[in-house]
Amino acid sequence: MAVYTEVSEREAGALLQALGLGELQALRGIEGGIENTNYFVTSSAGEWVLTLFERLTHAQLPFYLHLMKHLAQHGVPVPEPQAKPEGARIPAGEDDILHTVCGKPAALVNRLRGKSELNPGRAHCAAVGDMLARAHLASRSFDRRQPNLRGLAWWNETAPAVLPHLDESQAALLRAELAYQNHVAAGSAYAALPRGAVHADLFRDNVMFAGTPEQPELTGFFDFYFAGVDSWLFDLAVTLNDWAVDLPTGATDAPRTRALLDAYQAVRPLTDAERRLLPAMLRAGALRFWISRLWDFYLPRSASLLTPHDPRHFERVLRQRVAAPLALP
């Protein structure tokens, strides 16, 4: 259940009125998600998703919301935060697209068409690769800055907390991979990687499709609340580690990998440094999610209402990425 704060029809209607989005026709809580309260909202002007942020603050949210707004305005299909009318009074702590509902920071975005594809084929992977490259190019002109808060510094900080819960083989793998990633990050090739705002969590359940399995239409990326500034290669690696692996084993799925990479590079060809470091970044992406799932599994927050993901999946992906590095032609 992802309705932690009850929103009344009066409160939802008041927000719609303040944003000039018509009269409320329906309000329905969304079951699912992890940390935020979500509602489907129907008004006389369209279909929307209302999110109340239960952990992120008014001060933390502008980077994420303005990134979504920027991408939407540059032709990337993402939920676009709806703005207050020009000249409207902006209360303290808010801005034009950050609002307050029931005392919580809130955003209202357009509802995407379609559904997530949890068993993607090559056509889905190609569509994701194409749009991810377009999002990276669009982020070049995004001027807000926030580091990837789940990047290398967080891995170094969090690893000691999860190590006591691992067996000897797992602990050895974690220590060795963390040392390797620190070594990579200190090198000149890593420093040369193109950077910008990244999604950093573009898994299968964060993309929507319409159309058919043979001819899918990618209708949007969503859930940008792990976004930050990092290398675009890391973002690509995180995406490949979910869309183009065999879930039971963690092994590379070669046809889906090729489809995603070819489509990405048709829009934004990888630099020499990126081609050289893709195997290392695939390992980095697996390490990031192995550590975070270990953390969620062994050190869960008391407020969490969902069963944490099994961390062994990304342990398998990491072992596969170490044993069989991806070779680009």
Rank of each mutant, 00 (worst) to 15 (best):
T257C: 12
P105M: 01
L261D: 02
G196K: 01
P85Q: 03
R144G: 00
P160R: 06
Q60M: 14
P194S: 08
R283W: 06
V109M: 12
D201I: 04
V184Y: 00
A273L: 02
G46S: 12
A176S: 15
F53H: 12
L15E: 03
V41M: 07
G87V: 08
T158Y: 01
A159K: 05
R55A: 14
L15F: 07
A244L: 12
A107F: 05
E80A: 15
L15T: 01
L277Y: 06
C102V: 13
I30C: 00
N156D: 13
L240Q: 09
Q17E: 14
P62L: 07
E94F: 07
A153T: 13
L261T: 03
A210G: 14
V78Q: 02
A286F: 05
D96P: 03
V76K: 01
S44L: 07
A251L: 13
R293N: 09
A26I: 03
H183V: 07
S43K: 10
P194T: 11
Y225K: 09
G211K: 01
P164V: 10
L277A: 05
R89L: 11
L240T: 02
L166F: 11
L98H: 02
F314R: 06
H199E: 10
P85K: 07
L152S: 06
T158A: 09
T158G: 05
I291R: 11
R276L: 15
E6P: 08
G32V: 03
R321Y: 00
L118G: 04
L166Q: 08
E31D: 12
A327L: 13
L149Q: 15
A123I: 02
E168A: 15
G75F: 12
V109D: 00
G151H: 01
